[in-house]
Design a protein around this nucleic acid. Structure first.
Length: 591
RNA sequence: GCGGCUGUGGUCCAGGGGUUAGGACAUGAGCUUCCCAAGCUUAUAGCCCGGGUUCGAUUCCCGGCAGCCGCACCA
């Protein structure tokens, strides 16, 4: 049976272990700082991992920068304190912790008093501590005394400048860079909505206990797009391009419902039925799906799950996560596509006291009758002194009917004030309103590159039995594969190596990433290349010397064709672009 | 962060208070007209870090770090 075919290691290792072992051995992912014992939550990308990551990012650029036309910017990874006051990361990103003085166990202090205070978030650390003391709450484990509350913030903190008191924080997301550059971006796009800006870069979160390897990192790469839209228009002009796309959606309703299951449906259906809030959000869910497919995820291990109300960030109106199924971890979030509404811009408006609005002209200017109230400040001033301004403001809020009275009464500071009609004049003025100032809403597709990279590895990793040996293959998509072609002289003899090197150079001249390898048997080299996903191998043999043909071998099928050396610079790129079927690349050889 | 288990060449594993720590696989060099991890010769390479006990520690003890599992945490 199958049992016989698998070695003991195969049974004891789960897929995560196998993929990580492969990734480590072949130079994709390494634990960082290994020389000095390592640090949890940090990984290096090795010689194959770095190009794989770069290619995934480039594919993302192709989708969001080139096709969507969003500009790419690059902001500092260290941010000043105000940003994170506004974004809420300084307060909301930290947890109040308390420690048992007896057994040392650490608890979320707000969780311990949940049954007493309904909204513990609103309390300060000291207030929580008071509640704990007053209600005789002790360590749930050993009933020991609990310590004072201290805050654990997930942001890395530093100081800016020598001896400086100015705090700096390593950014916990790249998104804020786009928000705080909103005025300049708006100008760059010549004051018109919608527009988008993206950033690909590192973010940092000082996780309490990062496990799960590359799934939860303290330093990680994000690719985020912030799309600024007019909240009054949530349609998308290119919606028709994606509306028939079928994908697996797991709506909030289906999650809550007994026996509710993810359902396959078209994007159009999802919007029509109100499952996805609006076209724009649905459009980017669809593009996200297309991107992940291109990157090489397997379709049946991908779904889009809607955030439940209680897990949704307080600012978000709707949020869909692209989730991938991993053998060890189950469904994990790779991408979040959120409608962040105007939360971020409003927060930064308040914090920075600037105006982050856009003037949106109406289709047709409107004529509006408007009541203009003119308090006579020359007279009001001497009468009301320092209250004069408040009185004037109160008068301006009245309607025509009130103002027509002989004696007008307004309430100022809780006091009713009577004002003679001679102290204020008013008139109806007709004015033209050409548009309005609005705070844009933000749609945010946010991608976790490291998780996507790992998922690409896991989803493309196959083991199959060939002649009673296990063949490990990474079926990476040609778009993201680090090594595109291997050139292999059948043996490392000078007469074979010379033409092989010529082929290598010819392909390099075409911008192809070629690996030349002459060591070990040809079969061994094929397997080595299978393991790192090299899609095609070119073998130079003695026949090559006679008729200038070589063997091209296909990674997935192991099939071979015989092709002329001169054609390689054309056929190989065509194969890699998936414009040419492997069988057409030469004369098929029987295996 | 707490508790349990673990830490030996690149990888997987053996061993052990005392001279040169052993194997397999992988890797390098060489041989072999070699198309799917063949064979032969040969080489390189290791006891996680710090402290303690001891004449002597890779081995025993303590601490740190890392990994795995459970708990907590996961904006």
């Amino acid at each position: 049976m199958i049992l016989r075919d698998l070695s003991i290691e195969d049974w004891s290792m789960d897929k995560y272990e196998k993929v990580i072992a492969l990734a480590r051995r072949r130079g994709f992912i390494w634990p960082a700082f290994e020389l000095y014992g390592g640090a949890a939550g940090f990984y290096d990308y090795g010689p194959l991992g770095a190009p794989l990551k770069r290619k995934i990012e480039d594919l993302w650029r192709e989708f969001f920068v080139i096709k969507e036309g969003f500009c790419e910017i690059e902001c500092p990874t260290i941010g000043v304190e105000e940003i994170y006051v506004a974004s809420g990361h300084l307060s909301g990103f930290s947890d109040p912790l308390t420690e048992c003085k007896e057994c040392g166990e650490i608890y979320r202090a707000d969780h311990l008093i949940k049954h007493i205070i309904e909204v513990p978030d609103a309390l300060s650390g000291e207030e929580i501590y008071t509640v704990i003391k007053e209600n005789d709450i002790f360590c749930p484990e050993c009933s020991g005394d609990l310590s004072q509350i201290y805050e654990f913030n997930l942001m890395f903190k530093t100081t800016i400048g020598p001896g400086s008191k100015q705090a700096g924080y390593l950014r916990p997301e790249t998104a804020q860079g786009m928000f705080i550059n909103f005025p300049r971006l708006l100008r760059y796009y010549r004051d018109r909505l919608p527009f988008g800006a993206v950033q690909i870069g590192k973010s940092y979160r000082n996780e309490i206990s990062p496990r799960q390897g590359v799934i939860r990192l303290r330093e990680f790469s994000q690719a985020e797009a912030e799309i600024f839209i007019n909240p009054k228009d949530k349609s998308h002009p290119r919606f028709d391009e994606v509306e028939d796309l079928k994908l697996i959606l797991y709506s909030e309703e289906d999650q809550e419902k007994e026996g509710g299951q993810p359902r396959e449906m078209t994007i159009k259906e999802a919007v029509d039925k109100g499952i996805i809030a609006h076209q724009i959000l649905a459009y980017y869910v669809a593009r996200t799906y297309q991107f992940l497919m291109e990157a090489g995820l397997s379709r049946d291990r991908l779904r889009f799950r809607q955030h439940k109300k209680d897990e949704m960030a307080h600012y978000a109106a709707d949020c869909w996560d692209a989730e991938a199924s991993l053998e060890r971890f189950g469904w994990i979030e790779l991408v979040g596509v959120a409608d962040r509404t105007d939360y971020d811009l409003r927060s930064h408006m308040a914090q920075s006291r600037t105006n982050l609005t856009v003037f949106v002209p109406f289709d047709k200017p409107r004529r509006e009758e408007k009541l203009v109230v003119k308090p006579d400040m020359k007279k009001l001033g001497p009468i009301f002194r320092n209250k004069a301004k408040a009185v004037a403001e109160a008068l301006k809020s009245l309607d025509a009917e009130e103002l027509e009275k002989e004696t007008i009464s307004v309430v100022v500071d809780g006091e009713t004030v009577e004002i003679g009609s001679d102290l204020v004049s008013f008139e109806m003025v007709e004015e033209t309103i050409r548009g309005e100032e609005i705070v844009p809403h933000v749609i945010e597709p946010s991608f976790g590159i490291d998780r996507i990279l790992y998922t690409v590895l896991e989803h493309s990793c196959y083991e199959e039995m060939v002649d009673e040996e296990t063949r490990t293959v990474l079926k990476l998509r040609p778009k993201v594969v680090p090594i595109q072609v291997a050139v292999l002289p059948l043996m490392d003899k000078d007469e074979l190596m010379a033409p092989a090197k010529e082929i290598t150079d010819a392909l390099k001249a075409r911008g192809i990433y070629v690996e030349y390898d002459s060591s070990g048997s040809i079969g061994r080299r094929y397997r080595r290349n299978d393991e790192v996903g090299t899609p095609y191998s070119i073998t130079v043999d003695y026949e090559t010397l006679e008729d200038k043909t070589v063997t091209i071998r296909d990674r997935d099928s192991m099939a071979q064709v015989r092709a002329g050396v001169d054609q390689l610079p054309d056929t190989i790129p065509a194969l890699l672009r998936e414009e040419l079927e492997f069988g057409e690349a030469g004369v098929p050889l029987r295996s």
